[in-house]
Design a protein around this nucleic acid. Structure first.
Length: 291
DNA sequence: ATGCCTGAAGGGTTCAGA
């Protein structure tokens, strides 16, 4: 088995992001890419991207719909047993295109775009929790050689937001959401970026407005969660901030993990660097939300 | 007082995002 690089990126419209996505594929050369918020139906996705991706040796599993949501997996290490959505999962009221799974290079890969939740206690919020429970069931029924990659729309801990006080009363940080994520992780999944960078200020999403990226006022909601046999192979895990800079970025940055080449040849877990405290700075409020 | 950006659909504006 060859070394493999797996990435996940909420591109916020693959059509609008094409001028950023293609150069990024050429620069980072990931073997497996999980995409979220593609915002395209599958035929439109194929029409837009088939040739560009085939030229880069990617096979594609896209599960999308017009205008909203949409996920995909690109792979050049095989793409088998594709499953669209969460079988038996909840809808709002109908199933949305928020998950797709495939086996790539011996690893079960799940690309997810977890519902936003909008407001704690709302119907959207209850849907979010039900969706997460269904995702847990899906993973529980699968192999340990698994990665769940995507936009979880949950900051796992207060270290994953620029200012916990700014998020009081908002989604993404509430106890039920974090508990639902913890129940998923309790299946044996490891948060590979946080494990590699304990205590570091590391975000994957910054609001477009109010110079939030420039001030590094963000949150870490895009995760790669790896089953133990995969987590043991991690050599590097990081967030590609470069992709959030410049002209026409997504509001999310890609997350990237590099695995070593084989379970029987692995060099063991990377020793994490010494922990440093998260330094908090900047505003104490979020850009205001319409009521 | 505030969706301050961005994207999409559809229609001259509205909704959604986190």
């Amino acid at each position: 088995m060859e070394p493999v690089r797996i990435a996940t990126w909420n591109v916020n419209s693959v059509k609008q992001r094409l001028p950023r996505l293609l150069p990024w594929l050429d620069e980072r050369r990931p073997d497996v890419v999980c995409l979220q918020e593609t915002k395209l139906a599958d035929d439109a996705f194929a029409e837009l991207l088939h040739d560009e991706l085939a030229a880069r040796s990617y096979e594609v599993a896209a599960h999308g719909e017009a205008a909203w949501n949409g996920v995909a997996i690109l792979s050049r290490v095989g793409l088998d047993d594709v499953v669209a959505g969460l079988p038996g999962g909840p809808g709002f009221p109908h199933p949305e295109a928020r998950a797709v799974s495939a086996t790539c290079g011996g690893i079960r890969v799940v690309s997810v775009y977890v519902p936003n939740g909008r407001a704690p206690g709302s119907e959207h919020y209850e849907y979010k929790l039900a969706w997460l429970a269904s995702l847990r069931d899906l993973v529980a029924g699968g192999p340990q050689e698994v990665v769940v990659c995507g936009d979880m729309n949950i900051a796992p801990t207060d270290d994953d937001v620029f200012d916990p006080e700014a998020y009081e009363g908002h989604t993404h940080v509430t106890a039920p959401e974090r508990e639902a994520l913890a129940e998923l992780q309790a299946l044996g999944l490891h948060d590979v970026v946080r494990d590699r960078w304990p205590g570091e200020r590391v975000f994957s999403y910054w609001d477009y407005r109010a110079g939030m990226f420039h001030q590094d006022l963000g949150m870490r909601i895009d995760l790669i969660l790896a089953g133990a046999p995969v987590a043991e192979r991690v050599r590097a895990a990081w967030i590609d901030r470069q992709a959030r800079k410049g002209k026409g970025p997504s509001d999310h940055a890609p997350v990237i993990v590099d695995l070593d080449e084989a379970p029987d040849g692995h060099i063991g877990p990377v020793v994490p660097p010494p922990s440093r405290p998260v330094v908090r700075r900047g505003a104490k409020t979020l850009p205001q939300t319409r009521e």
